[in-house]
Design a binder for these strands. Structure first.
Lengths: 300, 300
DNA sequence: ATTTTTGAATTTAATTATTAAATACAATAT
DNA sequence: ATATTGTATTTAATAATTAAATTCAAAAAT
């Protein structure tokens, strides 16, 4: 089979449901009506009707589609569970790179990875092609792909890019009016940081999540598809890095919480200079942490 | 044929060249040596040797590969001209969108476009997948692609992203030491702008090129793969826009030259505040121009 | 007569199958 | 002992195939 008939199978099942809600002897609506309701092409509707006819559930002739008997559970077709989405693939891929310390320069085997991740090879192909825009992977002249990213250079440039975008977000944020929802959000975040700080010893693992939430809130101010897209990659990599680098986690997180609090307080005070300085300090240290982690993992 | 044998054909031709530089009766080097020299696998080398043998140019038996006679031009294999690169595809695609005023929401036909652009369908697929990262195209749930970009929203967000990146470049530029090559480059650019200004009436078409050069010079200061990648898209779109929007071209370019000159002079004076103001002014007007052009083309 | 619906054909796109090319490994010659 | 070749296996690019969408004309219903 060249292409899966998942679409047909799920449409057939919904059609069974529609029949289930009708009385025997009733007429099914027109093909176009069914197609619209099921969000599927008429080709599929006709295919499903044909099957209903041959299963003696419906008598189909021209525009007469009479329900002969009610469908039973046994009539349903089984569906193959759909392959993971691009986001899931992205996560799996980064997870794999970090979990096994895949070094830069490793050549990627599309066939093997597609088996490993449970996706069709061409999906992975497209995914890699997308990543190549960010320089994380590269196409080799002879064909195939190599993992070129996750070097120190990559981390430095990613961090600097992050710095540019986030400083811009800070400037935008401080220009917002007093009645904007951001201020209450920031106050909530301040509270959460302080709570985590008091029992950090037992809950220090929770910082990764809070860190993500804080940066997302600040960056969320900038409504720009390019910025949003870039931040997706940035947060993905920084988040995964947090997940995998367990050295000095308590100390690192304690320091980061202080930096966040300084930054939040400065913003709540509407102090531009102090906010920028605090942001700069945190982002620069964050970069150093990422770099050190890469060194520790021999990914340099 | 599943896969083209372009690689084999070009390798065979290079092998003919190698034979041409040898004397009749001489021995060809080992397969591995040839493979390395031709940057190709041994499989191809062996295939080519087999063909040379069956053409009675070389007598091949085991590790004896004796040149029997010199190859002639007629022995060469014809090469299919290789498909356009990703960059060329990118240009063609944008060209097509702007030339025919393709409106946002148009569904893109991969099969037809791949014929039109002379690339394999899966190359185009990958290309679109890459563009989808920038939100210029989107994948439809039913399959296929739609052109979602080139709306006013896209132009606004692209311009604002450009502003963030370019202002950052300006700040970096002004921090460079006096002996950096950027200063002489800027002086050259100033000269070029002034020359173009004096006979603008006859040469105003040349501004598009100079504009590209100027922005590339400023942005070139930031050595960051993410910034570089983003700027590729930005300059592509702004450049194409210049090419296609011919309304008030002379006036627009005259104004832009003045803005550039103010900006260049401020930078040459190492005046941070004046440089940022000049940059901001130019970039904001540039955004308005792009927006107006889109309105004129009914792409909103 | 006009609109709606269907039948059939065409076009498009997702996936498999096939082939070219690369790689790995054992066998042989130097 | 080393270099080179012969053969088998693996991988990736492309063609072929099939599911599904779309189009258009004919038929039925209003």
């Amino acid at each position: 089979m060249a292409r899966t008939d998942d679409r047909f199978r799920s449409a057939y099942n919904t059609l069974l449901d529609i029949c289930g809600n009708m009385e025997v002897g009733e007429q099914l609506p027109a093909e176009t009506v069914l197609a619209n309701r099921m969000e599927v092409s008429r080709t599929i509707v006709r295919g499903a009707l044909q099957k209903l006819d041959s299963e003696n559930l419906v008598e189909w002739e021209g525009r007469r589609k009479t329900l002969i008997r009610k469908p039973e559970p046994s009539h349903r077709l089984t569906l193959a569970d759909n392959p993971p989405s691009t986001e899931e693939l992205e996560q799996q891929f980064l997870d794999w790179i970090l979990r096994f310390d895949i070094p830069a320069g490793t050549s990627l085997n599309v066939a093997q990875l597609s088996r490993q991740f449970g996706v069709p090879a061409h999906s992975l192909q497209e995914f890699l092609s997308g990543l190549s825009r960010f320089g994380l992977v590269e196409r080799r002249p002879k064909g195939g792909w190599i993992l070129s990213g996750f070097t120190a250079g990559f981390a430095i440039e990613l961090s600097e890019f992050r710095l540019v975008l986030e400083m811009n977000a800070v400037r935008h944020l401080l220009a917002l009016p007093d009645d904007h929802e951001i201020w209450s959000k920031l106050r909530d975040l301040k509270q959460e940081h302080e709570e985590l700080k008091t029992d950090l010893a037992s809950r220090y693992h929770d910082f990764s999540m809070l860190d993500g939430k804080f940066h997302a809130t600040v960056n969320g101010i900038v409504k720009n598809r390019f910025v949003v897209e870039a931040q997706k990659l940035i947060s993905l990599i920084f988040h995964y890095h947090y997940m995998w680098d367990k050295r000095d986690e308590l100390e690192r997180n304690a320091a980061a919480i202080e930096e966040h609090l300084d930054w939040i307080n400065a913003m709540l005070d509407r102090d531009v200079e102090r906010s920028e300085a605090a942001a700069l300090k945190h982002l620069r240290r964050s970069k150093e942490t990422l770099l050190n982690s890469l060194k520790g993992h021999q990914l340099v």
